[in-house]
Nucleic acid binder design. Structure first.
Lengths: 247, 247
DNA sequence: CGAGCGATTGAAAAGACTCAACCACCGTGG
DNA sequence: CCACGGTGGTTGAGTCTTTTCAATCGCTCG
């Protein structure tokens, strides 16, 4: 990190300095998270370049990466852990739009749009995250048509997913949305169990915490899930599919 | 159109042939809709190419351009008129995601993602629309970095907008969402009045038609809007802002 | 061991939806 | 030219889902 932070909106950059330990020495080339990511088919040469420029750190639980309204200075490459991406409604209530897992690159949308972030992101658990500066990232996009196409593809795909998300929000009951959310979360968390606070889960489903808890209880009584203190184990995927209307 | 349609999913291509009159002779170079569009800063040379390849037609009201689940064969360039982009929920109810006006290019998301359409599109009124085949469009993207960057920017911008849309759906009351919708529609329709069926408007707001009608009545009684048979005139923008929570 | 956050439960209120009926406009065909 | 049928718009009443508020519980960390 070569510059002193000026804009206090840009939390991550300041926080980076407070983190326990850097793992900058880890090479992208052997990064297991990379293979499935957008950087999956980037050339060796570019990876070396990336290794030199990136800045990697461990993040504690509940640390913000960036905040809605601030200007992006780079992208975050999630090497391990889970990150929630959310916006805040008028009463300050979070709406979780997406939960990212290892391999995902976070925050390039705002950078490409030239606007401020429209969403915030923060860690849900301890995470290992590499930071790539704006310049470097934009350079890579100019250089690598593979990366560029991958990004366009990703953006388009997400746009489609969000159309479905919107429709679900508008038309499905909370029960149906919860089933849908559990299916998505199952994919994100497996082989582990879903591990979120009730509030985060409620903010993902788009409901009140109390409603969520009542519905979880219903699902438990119907034998669809098991609850271990806070973690949720999916028992009956088919039934969830049926409830969610995913067929 | 050089190929006979094979897949009946691809409605527009078949329908193209049934349309009244082609306006292929119109040059992109002097197209007033183009200037503000993604094609705004494309080079002359490429425009000439486009002129040769594109296929332009008039569409009647309520004609589909493409349908959810089918594979894209090109993009639609909206020269005049309005087009709704929507998905269908499980009960077949439409959720309108976006309403496009002249100058917009429709349907490139699915093409870039390599997936089937996740949304459907159909005209809301008589429209003048040019069709550009997949190959041609992808070529243009490869060639023109201006266009490419414009597209990445557009995709990113929309992704941000959809995050806000999701949050609105999840957290705002129908009254607030209606106010928000009217503000958006005002921008799209001005200087004309908003002209949508009550059902389409309800499907945009994400509510039942009856509820929508009752709220419109409220707004009218509060002096926020005027209703002329079906068209809606905005009287008090500030109040709408306040209700929508847009500040 | 106590503070405090996260989880849970209950009861009442509110918002929105559904269903059913009715109205109004418009184009068509006799 | 008018009656007819149909679509889109409107209204009312009852129901149900979901939220809100308030209170309690329970685990975890210092």
């Amino acid at each position: 990190m070569h510059k002193t932070p000026i804009n206090c909106n840009f939390i991550s950059e300041t926080i980076d300095c407070m983190l326990e330990k850097s793992h900058k020495h880890d090479s992208c080339e052997f990064c297991s998270a990379r293979k499935e990511s957008l950087f999956g088919s980037v050339h060796h040469h570019d990876l070396d370049e990336l290794d030199d420029r990136k800045n990697c750190n461990f993040y504690k639980k509940n640390q913000p990466l960036f905040i809605e309204g601030s200007f992006p200075r780079g992208v975050f490459c999630l090497n391990g852990g889970k990150v929630k991406v959310f916006t805040r409604g008028n009463e300050g209530k979070e709406q979780i739009i997406h939960i990212a897992k290892e391999g995902e690159i976070i925050g390039f949308r705002a950078m490409l749009s030239g606007e401020t972030y429209k969403v915030s992101a923060s860690t849900l658990e301890e995470c290992k995250i590499c930071f790539i500066g704006k310049e470097d990232f934009l350079n890579m996009i100019e250089t690598s048509s593979v990366l560029r196409n991958g990004i366009m593809k990703e953006l388009s795909k997400e746009l489609g997913e969000r159309a479905v998300f919107i429709t679900n929000m508008a038309q499905k009951s909370v029960r149906e949305r919860l089933a849908f959310a559990l299916l998505i979360l199952n994919d994100i968390y497996k082989p582990e169990e879903i591990n979120l606070t009730r509030e985060d889960l409620a903010n993902f489903v788009g409901t009140a915490t109390e409603t969520l808890i009542r519905l979880l209880k219903d699902f438990k009584e119907e034998g669809i899930i098991e609850i271990h203190t806070r973690k949720i184990e999916i028992i009956d995927l088919n039934e969830l599919d049926k409830i969610a209307g995913t067929r």
